[in-house]
Amino acid sequence: MNLAKIIAAKELKGYFASPAAYIVLVIFLLLGGWFFASPLFLSNTSDLRSLFGIVPIIYLFFIPAVTMNLISREKSTGTLETMATFPINETQIIMGKFWASLCLIGIGLLFTLIHLITIMLLGTNIDYGAIFCGYIGLILLGALYSSIGLFTSSISNNPIVAFIISFFIVFFLFIIQYSLFFIPPFLAGFFQYISSGYHFDNISRGVIDTRNLIYFISGTALFLRLSITLLETRKWK
């Protein structure tokens, strides 16, 4: 079996071995459900736009919480030493943990399909393309935030510190597009480009543009690469 897959399986099992994953998932689904259901009959449209509006906000807490322990705990308890002396390299460790986090997010998203079923039963003229794109966007956004969470988890030995730093990074990336009017015009384009919300909105509108894909994929790759490098530097310190 692929080594990253073994790590991912172990981490995923670890999530469900403690109540933490259940609590996080329940909160995720409660919030998502509330914000989806409450405006449903008011807006009277059969789409998941309200869901796609709230999930990125829930992500801001959800993903840092899911990823904060991944590396920092291994460092603080010393298990990193056992892990790193297995015949495995740093890339496989980080990728394994990344997939575990993404899988947990995927499980959360899987449960939100109940909302899709609701509008399929109640609504008419459903734009399945837009919904499909929205989910793709949520997965890409989850991947980006997971890689950021992994990166901050590799910085600190303390999960709480890791949580706070990754929360600030993802919050910045999320909020920046709403604050563009504070930014000098010549920088506005740049800040708009680095804002995760901007790219997510484009995708969830039903347009998958390569620009947006490149943003998510390269951003995720960058933070994964940084995490791997951080994990490797322990050897040279």
């Binding site: 670890g14 071995a17 010393g78």
Partner: peptide, 14 residues
Amino acid sequence: IGYLPEHNPLYTEM
């Protein structure tokens, strides 16, 4: 190599 590190770190939740 088989290695038992100092302080024997284990995944205690497993």
